[in-house]
Nucleic acid binder design. Structure first.
Lengths: 215, 215
DNA sequence: GACGATCCTGATTTGATCGTCAGGATCGAT
DNA sequence: ATCGATCCTGACGATCAAATCAGGATCGTC
């Protein structure tokens, strides 16, 4: 180790990162499709096109691998909350937020489903994340909405209820995708359908939450 | 068997039903908390306060037990769609529907979570139910909303999108209960909080989906 | 080309849970 | 009291997936 050059270390690191990346991608897929309990290391390894033992070599245990996937996914989730532009008017800020959340549901359905599954089963694994990371970020946004509300730029609604409504309606398109597909009678959801749904959701929620009719 | 009286048969049936009921209740709890894969027959049996073998005696296999729970739960889910009063004005009908769905989320959180988990993992097990039972029932309701829309009693929104919004926002309080609890900083959700949330959701969605400002 | 370090994997062990089975307990009918 | 039918259960076996391990392959350095 004392004789290792930086180049050698970097080369090894690249190999490691590539392998870990492939495993993480495969794992995110399998965990989201089957849930962490039903997912098997063998299936994850098969999708990453490598032997089972290799997965254990890199991540030690299935639980550790799941935790790594979860951590990745939570970072994505957190970054979405920051998408609210605190400068613009409520109408534009909320509209942009809704569209951003819908885009995540479309672009990262596996990530959305993993978080949803975690919460569905009580959220014990993400408790500290929610307390230490999510809530502080969220609080600033809640304060912003509360501020709007006090200056009558948002109707008198509990800011938290408004956020719940936005989360529910946007994440629905990732977590209930199989239902949406069945009810709409399509093969799969296209980006265009996501755009249309985003428009409709933003339209209804904004009209419902902002003062004055807009047409 | 040829000599069995009706009374004896009824007595046995009562015993059987009681035991099966206890098992089904315990199973619904455990399945909803852990998911079908992570749930163990041993834990279900422990909650029903009986040996593991007894659960197998009544239901044969864990899969059969899960299917029985799922079937119960889907019936409940279906019955909710019929709650829409096709006679009344849109405002009252939709408001009553939203409140009914919220009441289910509050009264039967385990049932809501089991269905949500099933859908989350692709809904393969409920595919035929959705096609043969849910969709036909739903279609009548969609037609009703479409009818309202054409007579300008509902704003120009896709009826399916409106239903998705209602489902998402109401089931959110069952499926994301651990998040709601964390964000609100309470121990658990009370009936009063569900009522308040119902009011807020109905208020925003109705104002967003119905023509003319209401204040 | 010998070295140290890391990468990688087939074979095997370990552990947990589903499901069976043989047989005892209970109960109503006669 | 005995009988048939069903209820009920402890003990056991089979299965399946996680995790270990010993050892070989590879790579940059000297």
């Amino acid at each position: 180790m004392a004789t290792r050059t930086a180049a050698a270390t970097a080369a090894k690191a690249r190999i490691r990162d590539a392998a870990q990346g492939r495993i993480l991608d495969a794992a995110a897929e399998v965990f989201s499709e089957r849930g962490p309990a039903a997912a098997t290391v063998a299936e994850i390894a098969a999708r990453a096109d490598m032997p089972t033992a290799t997965v254990h070599y890199y991540f030690g245990s299935k639980t550790a691998l799941y935790d790594a996937v979860l951590s990745q996914v939570l970072d994505l989730w957190l970054s979405e909350i920051d998408r609210i532009d605190t400068q613009g008017p409520p109408e534009e800020a909320l509209s942009a937020y809704i569209r951003a959340k819908m885009r995540v549901s479309f672009a990262h359905p596996a990530a959305s489903r993993i978080v949803a599954g975690e919460i569905l089963r009580g959220g014990a694994k993400i408790e500290s994340f929610v307390r230490d990371e999510l809530l502080p970020h969220l609080q600033a946004k809640l304060d912003l909405v509360e501020h709007w509300r006090r200056s009558n730029r948002v109707r008198p609604v509990d800011p938290r209820t408004l956020f719940f409504l936005i989360w529910a309606s946007t994440e629905f398109y990732a977590t209930y995708a199989s239902e949406v597909v069945a009810v709409r009678g399509v093969e799969r959801l296209t980006e265009a359908e996501f755009e249309t749904a985003s428009d409709a959701i933003a339209d209804i929620i904004l009209r419902g939450a902002l003062p004055r009719a807009r047409d």
